[in-house]
Design a protein around this nucleic acid. Structure first.
Lengths: 224, 224
DNA sequence: TTCTAACAGATTGTTAACAATTTGTGGTAT
DNA sequence: ATACCACAAATTGTTAACAATCTGTTAGAA
């Protein structure tokens, strides 16, 4: 692995953001993080620099690092970027998907449904995001996959900020996308994917946001 | 400004990469950088972490940081990602372009032509990239603009590695794209943009690459 | 000559101490 | 009661020293 110590911090925080445990605006105090990860502040500071470069953390001089708070304009841009990127990802997926890939997708769908029916919302959120990342993996373009990874994390922040109560990918939409991919019906798959993304976007509603005062350590401890 | 010291280092190195002064594989020694920027190594290390997150620097444990060396597969992915992103950027540009924007584009084209005819290759490279970034600015999607910024820098590295001698955006192609935008002809503009990007990609040819032994300080000193 | 091993120098990695800034608290005056 | 100021605590920012690792050179043996 690359620089294990720092990468662990980065991954841990990214996971917490993706899972909507860490919410927009939460302060990421250096001391708290270096305590939690049993490392020194230099590691934490570099990890925070990395996270800031990924645009999921904002750095305020002399005030510290905070989980990014996307503006409504940024939210709009993120969704448009997702449509642009996932259209190409979807096309790649349709063209590259092997039977084994279709199996992986269907297995994933089943897990999603189980989590949803079992009322396991945190897991449903994670798997819902995982579906989109799985498509990107099948599409076999690492650059687009990486950008989608970033965008889905920012989407998590946006939904946490502006989403109505139960905002979540409808998994019957996921299922229909898989059907279209399995049939090799590119037009249909891309149409469904685009509509799906627009549905997610429609589920958000801009409103005033409150300052965040969550306690960091308990949030991070909840992670896998 | 955010964290001036570090951001200066990051911007300086990004500029050098975009301008093809810093080539793939060049070692970025911490001491050399902290000497050049008159700062301490902690700043340099955080700047390098940021650059690594942007995928233009690779970090090898205990060996140091190097300008990234994109593989042929990565190059292919970068170009496909550019087509995906710039298609949406182009559409936004056609729809949002004001007469003032068209003026800016035409002014830019003139500067490009001057640089090219005057044999000023470094400036031609910078302006050629600038054209694409200007389109992104007119498109008014900050997320896509940022990704394009990253992708154009990676394109610079790719062309530096695998480009045939005079690989450069043909500026008559740029001019025709501007014409289509000025006419509001979206289909034509997007078609031309896509073809333009494919032409750039066709100008590269994968071959073995040599280890790089450039001297960092003189490269950075050449920057604006 | 060629290969190996040991050493010295240079570079990266880690840590702790100190400085500067902000934040919260308590007291005082209006 | 409220506004304001001063002080203390906490947090971020900066720096230097030290440890670990790698690189290149030199000497010696096959």
């Amino acid at each position: 692995m690359d620089r294990p110590q720092e990468d662990i911090i980065v991954e841990h925080i990214l996971d917490a953001i993706a899972d909507q445990r860490l919410r927009a605006g939460t302060k990421l105090a250096e001391q708290a993080l270096s305590d939690f990860f049993s490392c020194n502040r230099a590691h934490v500071r570099r990890a925070l620099a990395t996270l800031a470069a990924h645009r999921v953390v904002e750095h305020k001089p002399n005030r510290g690092a905070f989980v990014a708070t996307p503006t409504p304009e940024e939210a709009r841009d993120v969704f448009q970027a997702r449509r642009a990127i996932e259209t190409t990802i979807g096309r790649n997926a349709v063209r590259n998907a092997t039977p084994a890939d279709i199996d992986r997708l269907r297995t994933h769908l089943a897990e999603e449904q189980t989590a949803r029916q079992g009322g396991n919302r945190p897991r449903a959120i994670r798997l819902s995001r995982g579906f989109h990342l799985l498509l990107a993996q099948i599409g076999r373009n690492a650059v687009l996959a990486h950008y989608l990874d970033e965008l889905t994390m920012r989407t998590s922040l946006i939904i946490g900020l502006y989403g109505s109560g139960g905002t979540l990918c409808a998994d019957d939409e996921h299922a229909r996308i898989v059907d279209a991919i399995a049939e090799g019906n590119e037009t249909e798959a891309l149409e469904l994917l685009d509509r799906h993304l627009r549905h997610i976007e429609q589920g958000i509603e801009f409103r005033e946001t409150r300052p965040q005062t969550d306690i960091l350590s308990s949030i991070l401890a909840a992670g896998g």
